[in-house]
């Protein structure tokens, strides 16, 4: 125990320093540089906020911002609605199946984003699996469903990738709930539904919060799914991608990146507050 107090602080600093400096140089500085690019005038002299004004007043960009938020919000809500029952089942009823359920939840995370989007295309193409099944095999429909290139499919694809995070976040909190609280409620005469809505659900609200922030945050920055599945949505990440590719308006792309970054920082802040509150409780 001789090596306590005095030498530990410098040693700790020394061990942390390479990673800290690496991220400073190649993560923080590029983001700052990017922020500066959004406010430097096109000719390189002087500072302008014109791009931000444009972003927040131009109908084109406002629609894009609205679509970005609407898409992420819709995906988040659907993830909660779908993810909660699954998390509940995992914690309360799965028993020996829980290993399999966790594997099935993690498995999609092992697939590439290309594979997942390709899968949706193969499922819903005109001669894809679903349409062949419905039209030819079962004869339920006369004409193939038109699902590709609709916002609905984009939402489904987002939910598919992100719902495992929601399930795991909620399951982690459900696991920690004292079952006796629910039993007491039932002993006092509450029905099962009432016990759920008045005891279990309020107690698991932090899990829903953590999961929602995570899902919202990731959904907000995704663009590959939109590039491949279309759907007519023009979210901010997609516009950044297009502006880099075709219009080459880097100033505007930096402005949109910075807005996305600020949204991500707000989410991160909320996440930390939730985690901290969870830690104290």
């Amino acid at each position: 125990m001789k090596t306590s107090t005095f030498p530990t602080i410098p040693r700790r600093l020394l061990l942390t320093l390479p990673a800290v400096l690496f991220l400073l140089a190649f993560f923080i500085l590029p983001l700052v540089d990017n922020g500066l690019r959004s406010i430097v005038q096109a000719d390189g002299n002087g500072i302008t906020f014109a791009r931000y004004v444009q972003l927040l007043t131009d109908q084109f960009y406002l629609t894009s911002i609205a679509q970005t938020i609407a898409l992420s919000a819709a995906v988040t809500v659907i993830c909660v609605l779908i993810g909660y029952p699954v998390a509940y089942y995992l914690v309360r009823h799965a028993g020996r199946w829980s290993g399999l359920i966790i594997f099935l939840l993690i498995a999609p995370l092992l697939t590439s984003i290309i594979m997942r989007t390709y899968g949706w295309q193969v499922l819903f193409a005109r001669r894809g699996f679903i349409n062949t099944l419905l039209v030819q095999d079962l004869g339920l429909l006369d004409t193939p469903l038109r699902v590709l290139d609709t916002p609905g499919l984009v939402v489904a694809a987002f939910v598919h990738v992100l719902v495992p995070f929601m399930v795991l976040s909620i399951a982690a909190v459900l696991q920690g709930i004292d079952r006796r609280l629910e039993e007491s409620a039932q002993l006092l005469g509450a029905g099962r539904l009432r016990t759920f809505f008045e005891v279990t659900l309020p107690l698991s609200i932090d899990g829903i919060g953590t999961g929602s922030i995570l899902v919202f945050m990731v959904a907000n920055g995704s663009f590959v799914t939109l590039v491949l599945l279309g759907g007519g949505l023009k979210t901010l990440p997609l516009l950044i991608f297009q502006q880099f590719n075709t219009t080459r308006d880097f100033g505007m792309a930096s402005t949109m990146s910075t807005v996305l970054l600020v949204v991500a920082l707000v989410c991160l802040f909320l996440q930390l507050r939730l985690v901290r509150r969870g830690g104290e409780a």
């Binding site: 800290v20 983001l31 920055g221 991500a264």
Partner: peptide, 24 residues
């Protein structure tokens, strides 16, 4: 410092890529 080291996980990748390209 731990939060700082984990923070790239929370940032949109497209922003990280775009910013890194110009900076590098």
């Amino acid at each position: 410092v731990m939060t700082y080291l984990l923070s790239p996980l929370s940032m949109p990748m497209i922003v990280i890529g775009f910013a890194a390209l110009f900076f590098l």
